[in-house]
Design a protein around this nucleic acid. Structure first.
Lengths: 186, 186
DNA sequence: TAAAACTGTGTACTAGGGTACACAGAATTG
DNA sequence: CAATTCTGTGTACCCTAGTACACAGTTTTA
C-alpha cells in the first residue's frame, strides 16, 4: 500500500502535466479531470492531487505550458520572416493562418475554448489573454502597435471561421481583409 | 405520487425551454443539467426528461430559440437601416458591435462558447453556424456575398476581442478594419 | 539512531447528474 | 362505462468526479 519509490520524482510532475495537455488537446476543458489525467499519465489518482491540489491548479499549469508552446511557435514564425513588403506580410500571415488550421487545429480549438471559458471564469483571463498578447508582440516587429492589434483581431476572426465554418475561407478570403488592413489610404 | 394537473400543458414545455435559456445565458453550456433546469423552471425533475428525453434535446431546443432571437435582433437592425453610404454602413456596424457588447453580452458569450463547443461536437455545428449565417444574410442586403462573408469574419474577431480583451477595442479600432474592408482599391 | 519531515498512494466520502421506469391521474375511445 | 392511451411525477440506479485523509515508505535532521 505504501510508496515504492523514493523521494521527489520530478519526472512525475512532468508526466502529469504532459498528460494534462494531451487530455485538453484531445477533449477540451470539459474532458479534464483528475482521473482522466491519472489514467493518461499512468499514475495513481492520488498523484495528481498531490502535485496539483485542485483541478484549477492542473488547468492553469497545463494552459501555461500550452500558451508558451504557442508563443514559441509564433515567435519562430516571426523570426523566419526577413524584412518584407506589405504584400509579403500579407502572404506570410495567410500562410500562418493556413498552417495553424492545418497543423495545429487542436491547439487552436482549445485556445478558442479557453477564450470563451475565460469570459465566465476570471481566473482564466490572464491565460487566455496571453494568446492575443503574443500575436501582437510578434506582429509589432513588422507593424506599429495599433495595426498589430487590429491584425490580431482580424486574424482571430479568420481563424475562428476557418475552424468553424462549413466552407472555410479560401486563400483570397484570408488575404483580402489582411491586405485591406495593411493598405493605407482611407 | 400521482399527477395533479390534467392533460397536455403546453405552458410546461414553454417554461422548461425558457428556464433552459436562462441557465445557458447565466452559466453557459457547462451549467446545463436536467436538475438545474427543473429548479429554475419550478417543475419536477421528471418533467424535464419527459419533454426532452436527453440533455442534447434540451440544448438543441434552447439554442434554436436563442439563435432565432438573435436572428430577429439582427434583422431588426438591418431593417432599421435605410439606404446608406459606405461610411454610413461602417458607423452602423460599429454601433451594432458596441450595442451587442453592451446589451447582449450573455448571448454573445454563449454564441462563442457554442462555436467552440461545435468544433468538438458535430451535432452542434448547424446550430453554431446559424449565427454567422444570419449575419451574412443581413449584410448581404447592403453588400455583395463575398464582402458580407468577409465582414462577418471581421465582425466576429472584433466581437471576440471586445468580450475577451483586457482593454476592449475603441470605436476607432472597430471602424478602422470595417472601413478598410469596405473601401475598394487594393 | 530516534524523531521529524517529506513523498506518494489507496481508499473513501460526498455531491451532482443522466436516465430509466413504475406508477398515478386524466382523457379518450369503443 | 371499461379499457386503453397520454400526461406527468417521484424515485432509484449507476456513474463520474473532486477532494480529504490516513497511512506507508523514504529521507533528512538533531
Amino acid at each position: 500500500m505504501g510508496a515504492k519509490r523514493g523521494p521527489a520524482d520530478p519526472a512525475r510532475r512532468e508526466r502529469i502535466m504532459a498528460a494534462t495537455e494531451r487530455i485538453l488537446l484531445r477533449g477540451g476543458i470539459a474532458a479534464l479531470s483528475h482521473r482522466a489525467v491519472a489514467r493518461e499519465a499512468g499514475v495513481p489518482l492520488g498523484s495528481t492531487t498531490y502535485y496539483f491540489a485542485t483541478l484549477d491548479d492542473l488547468l492553469d499549469a497545463a494552459i501555461r505550458r500550452l500558451s508558451e508552446r504557442y508563443a514559441l511557435r509564433l515567435h519562430a514564425w516571426g523570426a523566419a520572416l526577413g524584412d518584407l513588403s506589405r504584400a509579403g506580410l500579407v502572404e506570410a500571415l495567410a500562410d500562418l493562418v493556413e498552417a495553424l488550421v492545418r497543423e495545429d487545429r487542436p491547439a487552436l480549438v482549445l485556445s478558442f475554448e479557453l477564450s470563451a471559458a475565460a469570459m465566465r471564469r476570471p481566473e482564466l483571463r490572464d491565460a487566455a489573454l496571453l494568446y492575443a498578447e503574443t500575436e501582437c508582440e510578434v506582429l509589432r516587429v513588422h507593424t506599429d502597435e495599433r495595426t498589430a492589434r487590429a491584425l490580431s483581431r482580424v486574424l482571430d476572426g479568420l481563424l475562428l471561421h476557418s475552424l468553424a465554418a462549413a466552407v472555410p475561407p479560401t486563400r483570397a478570403d484570408i488575404t483580402g481583409p489582411l491586405a485591406a488592413l495593411l493598405t493605407p489610404g482611407e
